[in-house]
């Protein structure tokens, strides 16, 4: 069910949530986290949909903060909060509150969000677009254990990547990194099989792809080699080549979800490498809520302090 509240406050929203739960007859809820989505009206629909799908794996309360742009000076002075409370079948497996802020309250959205967080449960903030330069310093970001940004949604991804590296704080993560998990696990599995030292690395991708850059930096950090970046027509990452003394390990995905894996001395074989939907990415993000150290390492592109395991 859906409850619309106009010119409201956090405490009225809390009351509406309780009322909504009573009405559908499930006063006890087993939600495991609060997900705050900060977005604009344009991206709200897709983001909510993705969050609701992800909530099937991670039952959560979703708070969507939409900052409304005022078109007249009079609107700008007029501060107002509207809310749409969705519970039951309208909100995946959890609850969704869509908050629309007008005027001054837009700069103090954290004052609305704070009372609506689930007690004693982790908070995740996701900016599908327009992430702040320093997520951890953002008033909403500061409430969260986990801050999700997306370098795919910026004009100049590689600059954004450097900005993310500069402002990194434990708990930051980016969907450009999440997208790499299948690639990384396949590369690790391929190396399990090849069992040999890698002497060179190449990442092929479309131009200005932040995932490809992260992948290259990760390979550099882990393999202690220089990774070459090759621009192709895309889409996204198209191939990774790891040079060894016996020949090349290649995962090649020219297009579509089907990739080819080639190992030295073995015939090539196909493997599935699908480009995943946003909801799958979010679901993966929510699986672990502690700091992603490997992301930090890839982001900085620096060699890790050497663990003795592969000296």
């Amino acid at each position: 069910m859906k409850i619309d509240l106009t010119d409201t406050t956090a405490s009225k929203i809390n009351k509406a949530l309780v009322r909504g739960r009573r009405a559908i007859g499930t006063p006890a809820v087993g939600m495991v986290l609060t997900m705050v989505i900060v977005t604009d009206e344009e991206n709200a629909y897709d983001a909510i949909k993705a969050a609701e799908e992800a909530s099937r794996e991670h039952p959560s309360r979703t708070l969507v903060v939409i900052r409304r742009v005022a078109r007249t000076p009079r609107d700008r002075t007029n501060s107002r909060l509207d809310a749409e409370v969705r519970v039951g079948s309208d909100a995946g497996t959890g609850e969704t509150v869509v908050l629309r802020t007008y005027g001054d309250v837009s700069d103090h959205a954290d004052s609305v969000v704070l009372p609506l967080l689930l007690p004693d449960a982790p908070v995740v903030v996701w900016w599908p677009v327009d992430a702040p330069d320093t997520p951890v310093k953002d008033p909403l970001g500061a409430l969260a254990q986990r801050r999700i940004t997306d370098m795919y949604a910026v004009e100049t991804p590689l600059q954004a990547l450097d900005a993310r590296a500069a402002s990194y704080a434990p708990g930051d993560t980016d969907l450009a990194w999440t997208r790499l998990t299948p690639w990384r696990s396949m590369l690790a599995a391929a190396l399990d099989q090849a069992r040999t030292k890698v002497i060179s690395a190449t990442v092929e991708s479309e131009a200005q792809n932040p995932s490809a850059e992260l992948l290259a930096r990760w390979l550099e950090a882990r393999l202690q080699v220089k990774a070459e970046r090759v621009v192709t027509a895309g889409p996204v990452v198209t191939a990774v080549r790891l040079g060894t003394d016996n020949g090349e390990i290649v995962i090649d995905r020219p297009e579509g979800p089907l990739a080819t894996l080639t190992l030295p001395g073995q015939p090539s074989r196909t493997l599935a490498l699908k480009v995943r939907s946003t909801s799958e990415l979010i679901a993966e993000e929510l699986r672990r809520l502690d700091a992603d150290e490997m992301y930090a390492i890839a982001l900085r592109g620096e060699a890790t302090e050497e663990t003795p395991r592969h000296v």
């Binding site: 390979l219 672990r288 992603d292």
Partner: peptide
């Protein structure tokens, strides 16, 4: 395998 690390939980 240098691509594996206990810290890499993904």
């Amino acid at each position: 395998n240098p691509l594996r690390d206990p810290r890499d939980r993904r």
